[in-house]
Amino acid sequence: MRISRHIIILLFAVPIGLFGQNKVVYDGQLSLLGSYSPDNELDVFLGGRYIPEFSYGFSLDSTKTLDFEASANISGSVLFHPFNASHEDGNIDPYRIWVRYSSNQFELRAGLQKIDFGSASILRPIQWFNQVDPRDPLQLTNGVYGLLGRYYFLNNTNIWVWALYGNEKTRGFDAVNTYKNHPELGGRIQHPVPRGEIALSYHHRTANSENLPFVPQFEKIPEDRIAIDGKWDVEVGLWFEAAHIHKSKDVGFLTNQTLLNVGVDYTIGLGNGLNVIAEHLLISSGQEAFQFENTGNITAATLAYPLGFFDNLSSVVYCNWASKDLSFFLNYQHEFQKITGYVMAYYNPTTQPGIQQNELFNQFSGPGIRLMAVYNH
């Protein structure tokens, strides 16, 4: 079992900072799951996860508040082929540890947190700081260590500024890891337009291509990324996201990346209402910017239909045009009195280039079925 060094903060700092207060809120989520994927060598997966969460907040005056949140990700799993081979894993990591100061138009949050923005829903060029996978019913994701400030103007314009440090894992469509001993800096401005909004984002980090095959290897690569996204509510929901990523060193075909997403959202008046989301993503990479020599196209769609007050049916489909690979995910959800149950069926190709993978939500190649029960308290 691996225990993160940061868990010391969670186990010791939280009781000191929070338990002395008389209004600590304690919540938690327990999930148990099992899956069978016959095309894999280890075809049976059993796992469990518990995320305990402590939170506390108080008012400094009539407009200012200070609040805290601390949670852990405690998980264990086993992959096995009955009576033949197995692989066990267990981890205890911090999930969120942050403190936030907020007023009517401003907030400042520091610590291990989730940062998320953008207009797209499935294939997200500016999913820069999380690993949320639309196929995961729980929408789990690792956080990032950093400082985030947001200011909201009265006309709904808002400005984000962030500084991150100590993060090295890939996130979203990252092609290479982050060099964790250099700070990451960036910001975003989002402005309302008729029937929608448009935003401009920028981020600078130091990338690390060491241990990557087929490309020149550098420990430190300055990288700049800029993105624009917009969303409108007309007869249907329409949006786009476009991002360009440039590395200042020659990393071969990963020196420049361009990603463009367009999407649409509409609820069909069929029965209880069938919600349909469709997106298309163009990915290009190369030594020169905007040459579009190495391109890929992915189309994705989600369907969601409420069968009743306690039952929902949803699906996610990906299609990679180059490889003609198809990925399919179907989820039936039922709400019991205290537990939510899920029955999931899926088919994944052997490789899924360009589709973000959430390490908290295991994916297996070929067909499979998964059962999951979730208890929130």
Rank of each mutant, 00 (worst) to 15 (best):
R2C: 10
I3Q: 12
I3G: 02
I16T: 14
G20S: 13
Y26G: 08
D27V: 01
L32N: 12
G34L: 00
R49T: 15
Y50N: 11
I51S: 10
P52H: 03
Y56P: 01
F58A: 08
S59Q: 11
S62P: 05
T65Q: 07
S71H: 08
N73W: 07
S86K: 12
S86L: 13
D89H: 10
D93T: 10
P94C: 00
V99N: 06
V99H: 04
S103N: 08
N104T: 10
I115L: 12
A120I: 06
I122C: 00
L123P: 01
R124C: 01
R124I: 04
D133M: 01
P137D: 04
Y145F: 13
L147I: 14
G149M: 04
F153C: 02
W160R: 07
W162T: 03
A163E: 10
E168R: 07
N177L: 08
Y179C: 00
H182V: 10
L185F: 13
Q190R: 12
V193M: 11
V193A: 07
R195P: 06
I198L: 08
T206V: 15
S209N: 05
V215K: 05
P216T: 01
Q217D: 08
D229A: 03
W232I: 06
W232K: 01
F240R: 06
E241P: 05
A243G: 03
K247G: 01
N256H: 15
N256S: 12
Q257W: 05
L260P: 02
L260K: 01
Y266E: 12
V276P: 00
H280D: 15
L282T: 07
N294F: 05
A300K: 00
A301P: 02
P306Q: 06
F310P: 00
D311K: 08
S315L: 01
Y318H: 12
N320W: 01
S327N: 03
L330G: 09
Y332D: 00
Y346M: 06
T351V: 12
T351F: 08
G354E: 07
E359T: 09
S365I: 02
I369M: 07
M372Q: 14
